[in-house]
Simulated assay, not measured.
Amino acid sequence: MRTLFLSPKLRWVFLLILTLSPILLVFLSFSNTASLKDEFDQTSNDRVQQLEEAVEELQKQLVEEKDLEKDLTDTLKKYKKIIIKRSKAPAPAPTYEGKILDCQEIDRIKITQNIAQGYSKVVQEGQLGDKYYAVKSASYEVKNVKDCVNSGKYKKREDCFILGSYQVLKEAMMLRQLQHPNIVRLLGLCVRSENSSPLIHERGVTVVEELGTPVLLHILGEMIFRSKVEVCLDLARLLHYLVDTPLGSVAITDWRDEQFVLVAGEMKLADVDGLNSKEPPCDKDMKCLINDLPSGLKCAQNMECPGTNAKTNLLHARTHFLQPLLGSGIPIEFFKHTSNLLQDLDKANLDAEDLVERLEDLMKFIDSYTQPPPLDIAKDYQY
């Protein structure tokens, strides 16, 4: 067996290495630990910074959400009253999808009497079976056709009659678009030609509508107070609808009482061919006027005055119906409510929606006041 021989110098080097190796190991271990500690400290600092940034971002989002919640709460509060008021308003009229009378059915209508001869059409009463209708058609005897013939604008007399037929047809088209419980319903339409004839089956254009009793203001004035309020409420609901229709905001241009009828006690607009869905223009100073007076409305970019039609309707309704019907003969117990309503309307403090609500409240007050108290029956009463 060979023995490992080390020289004295190598022996001393080897012994020195063995002696110092624990110290080197400790030093290397300390160095690695310090390095790991530095790395851990750096990682910890980075993580803390990330957490701080995340917390800061969450706090920022929380503030934004609180602001958004506040805005939503304010918006809900703002529209709460409007939602409540609109919930009290009458529901929109259902679209009339029923079948209307065609030419063959209209030909069987028997004309029973003449009702009226207006500016643009003749109105007659017609009967079909057990039902009665208002039958409207053009005639050479109506004013606009007569004026056209007398002016000599057209060589042919028949050309002027086309104008009358157009007015009748326009009314039918308006009734197809404007459907509301306080506007008469279109029940029949026949378009054949431009002919004029006393015979219904030979007429060019015939329109059939609900038949009602013409409104006469002096007759309405003789009704009991509750019935007057009911008529005014019908009118207010109509104005509320006309503020925003499929045609836009619509103005009633003819406020004669004969433009309205009573159908089963309900007031309805019977003549719609004269309605106007265009808002009036601003004046040269970009002001919106009603009856040459400032209206409080602003001129729009298209140089029209939005809201004028609605305000004008309220003004005419007060003058022609509300004031005459509610302004006199008020029972003392309803005087305060009624006079306050008229004053607010006169000061332009009410819009059509407000008017509906105030009249509904007045109706409820009248009914609660006039309702008889319940019978006080003794408990020991023997039946």
Results as ranks from 00 to 15, higher is better:
Q371C: 12
Q127F: 02
L128S: 05
R256T: 12
Q113H: 09
D273L: 13
D46R: 14
E64W: 08
R176A: 12
L375V: 14
K99S: 10
K311Y: 07
M286N: 11
V207W: 03
Q104L: 10
M363A: 07
F225Y: 15
A251R: 11
K347V: 07
Q117W: 01
Q343G: 00
S31M: 14
L62I: 04
K80A: 13
P181C: 07
L68K: 10
H180E: 00
C282N: 04
Y79F: 11
E357T: 12
Q167A: 13
L293D: 07
L238S: 11
A89E: 01
A300M: 12
L341A: 03
P280Y: 07
D354R: 09
R176W: 09
L189H: 02
L362W: 06
D159V: 08
M223C: 13
A310E: 10
A264V: 01
Q323N: 11
A54K: 11
F27P: 00
L275H: 02
I162P: 00
L51H: 08
L58Y: 03
L25D: 10
L314P: 01
F161D: 01
P374F: 11
S165W: 12
C305A: 11
L76T: 00
H201T: 00
G164Q: 10
L315R: 15
Q301I: 14
I17D: 09
A91F: 08
R318C: 05
A317C: 05
R237Y: 03
N150A: 05
R203Q: 07
Y166F: 13
P92K: 05
W255S: 08
E105Y: 07
P280Q: 06
K66C: 00
D351A: 13
R185L: 12
V145A: 01
Q59W: 07
L375Q: 13
Q167S: 11
H180V: 06
L220W: 02
R108K: 14
D361S: 15
D285P: 06
P372S: 12
K143S: 04
L187P: 00
C103A: 10
L18F: 04
L217M: 09
D254T: 06
L375E: 10
A172N: 06
D74L: 07
